[in-house]
Design a protein around this nucleic acid. Structure first.
Length: 566
RNA sequence: CGGGGCGUAGCGCAGCCUGGAUAGCGCACCUGCCUUGGGAGCAGGGGGCCGGAGGUUCAAAUCCUCUCGCCCCGACCA
């Protein structure tokens, strides 16, 4: 492809709307343009990247026996009503009516429709296993689209669905997906984790997420470098390191206006782990007082599993229910339900004194207060691993894929039923599996860039090589470049020829920005000596290569190595 | 949905607080010359509903009210 025939509108300046590195570089490199909040136009270069990513996905999905299909994006409400999600999902679903007034919605995902198909076409145990996938548009009216292409309202997703006769067979389908996903992300050049994830409302079902470490990520995972334990912090278990026990007499301390742990801790010159943080929560069953050690955070999911959905109490509610001003709550002597994190079971602490401007020292569990004990804290850096007790680290990550065991959640309501060997009707056992190709691309940029621009992993780069004729008015330079272009193209390489009548500096800058793995620089002086320069984008190393050896050079260099699962 | 920020040329911004004449700068763009190994130089030129509506005022990019849009933090996220 010739540069002059392609739309590659690079930007010299950083667009003010972009924050995440991948967002900035995609905009600057002319890969994407924003249409509205959460809606992006994929420009020619980006589409090339996505096509390569999708090509890898297709290969690996096909390899595990999955079949590609294509589902509508406009759905009748009825099917979603049958599974209940029409009612469960709120504003996140785009809804509309057709001309006859029939309720419709836009696809957020395709469990319903895939299951609908299965319910009609799968009748016997002999028809399974089946795995169907598509690379299809999804629409979600996100509360907050962000970070460029990372969180959008319309996006493409590879989603696959497995249909099996029983749990054991599902296990096989699930493992095949693990196999495929490990290969896909490795081949795309990403460093990634496969972590336990929260199956949400799926009850006992298992789920994993594929996570690419990046500061632009929205999720956090807890990782144990020692035994390999890894989980989304949404459900990670961790052992809180015990603080040094300090003996304190049971007495009140005057702490005027000091409400937060930080303030009181500084005021009394005691580290935060010597405090009990008392949080008043309002659950559907009434108020609950949750106790957490001062240096820790309340884990909302864990808490919700114990007391159901809840919200923090307002200031006035605290006063009403406990008779204490917010900021001075202590665990002693309240009539509400009290739940506490297990780490507080021992030692001695400081807590609110249940009266304004005072905290109480020397508070001991069992002696001064009682509670129901649970694991309530969020895993944090340097907590102990629940499996081996080594220290956990917390890493920010981008979710690039997930795999779920669904069981019969969709097959039951949609009556996707088959007859087993004994002629008994049984619901099909399902799994669903997603990958976000645009997120793969964004994560690749997040993980691989420098101050000059993108450094694409070779397998997903928009082109394999870019040829830079430094002076298009020099006939020899031009001629050599065109010849190399033809030669490399005929070898099956994807080649971008920067045939613009631009100065050398401009071409170098744009080439670095766009991030194609190899640059073949054709300059006047070198051409006279019969050589061109090959620059490796990743390292900046250059090498002079005789023109007749170029083909050979690239023949010996298949895709570069990649990080893979960590 | 709560909190914060920002809307002025294609992009990045200044001007606004303290109202006043033809709204300014850099980049990009067009023409010509020149230049050709890291975003050149000179000369000339085009491009603005100052997000929108209403109000205050002799006078509004500037002050006030409403509204729309975008970004960030939080909540939410099959």
């Amino acid at each position: 492809m010739k540069y002059t025939q392609m739309l590659i509108p690079t930007l010299k300046e950083v667009p003010s709307d972009a924050e995440a590195v991948s967002h900035v570089l995609m905009l600057r490199g002319g890969y994407v343009r924003q249409l509205a909040s959460g809606l992006y136009i994929y420009m020619p270069l980006f589409l090339r990247v996505l096509n390569r990513v999708n090509g890898i996905i297709r290969q690996e999905m096909n390899r595990i026996g999955a079949q590609e299909v294509s589902m509508p994006v406009l759905h009748p409400a009825e099917i979603w009503q049958k599974t209940g999600r029409w009612y469960e999902i709120k504003e996140e679903m785009f809804r509309l009516k057709d001309r006859t007034g029939r309720d419709m919605c836009l696809a957020m995902t395709h469990e319903e429709i895939m299951t609908w198909l299965a319910s009609r076409e799968i009748r016997s145990y002999r028809d399974m296993p089946q795995t169907w996938y598509q690379i299809q548009t999804k629409l979600r009216d996100e509360a907050r689209p962000k970070s460029g292409v990372l969180r959008t309202r319309e996006f493409i997703m590879k989603d696959s669905y497995s249909f099996d006769v029983d749990e054991e067979a599902l296990e096989k389908s699930y493992n095949l997906h693990i196999e495929a996903y490990d290969k896909i992300f490795s081949r795309c050049g990403l460093a990634f984790y496969r972590v336990e994830s929260d199956p949400g409302m799926m009850g006992g079902a298992t789920a994993h997420e594929y996570m690419a470490p990046s500061p632009a990520g929205e999720d956090e995972v807890a990782i144990c470098a020692n035994c390999g334990y890894s989980a989304n912090v949404e459900l990670a278990i961790s052992v809180s390191p015990a603080g040094d026990p300090v003996e304190m007499a049971y007495e009140d301390a005057h702490t005027p206006g000091k409400r937060t742990i930080g303030e009181v801790s500084a005021f009394l010159d005691l580290s935060p782990d010597k405090f009990i943080k008392s949080l008043l929560l309002i659950s559907s069953d009434g108020p609950v007082l949750a106790l957490i050690r001062g240096d820790q955070q309340l884990h909302e999911n864990k808490t919700a599993r114990i007391i159901g959905t809840f919200r923090p109490a307002q200031r006035e509610e605290v006063k009403e229910l406990l008779g204490v001003e917010a900021g001075f709550i202590g665990p002693m002597g309240h009539k509400v339900r009290v739940i506490a994190d297990e780490v507080l079971k021992t030692s001695t602490y400081v807590s609110g004194a249940n009266r304004s401007d005072y905290h109480t020292k020397g508070v001991k569990p069992a002696v001064h207060f009682t509670a129901e004990w649970f694991d309530l804290h969020k895993a944090q850096e340097n907590d102990g691993c629940p499996k081996c007790a080594a220290k956990l680290k917390i890493v920010k990550v981008i979710e690039i894929g997930n795999i779920f065991k669904l069981g019969t959640k969709y097959s039951a309501p949609l009556k996707a039923i088959y007859l087993d060997k004994e002629g008994i009707e049984k619901p099909i056992i399902m799994g669903s599996y997603g990958i976000g190709p645009a997120r793969i691309a964004a994560a690749a940029i997040e993980q691989s860039n420098d101050k000059n621009g993108i450094i694409w992993p070779a397998p997903i780069a928009p082109f394999d090589v870019e040829i830079l004729p430094l002076n298009m008015s020099d006939e020899e330079v031009k001629g050599v470049s065109l010849r190399l272009y033809d030669e490399l193209t005929s070898m099956g390489m994807e080649v971008l020829l920067d045939d613009r009548d631009e100065r050398a500096g401009v071409k170098f800058k744009d080439a670095d920005l766009i991030g194609i793995p190899y640059h073949v620089v054709v300059g006047t002086k070198n051409v006279k000596e019969g050589v061109v320069e090959i620059k490796k984008r990743a390292t900046g190393e250059t090498e002079k290569v005789p023109m007749e050896k170029i083909a050979e050079f690239f023949r010996q260099r298949p895709g570069t190595g990649k990080p893979g699962r960590i």
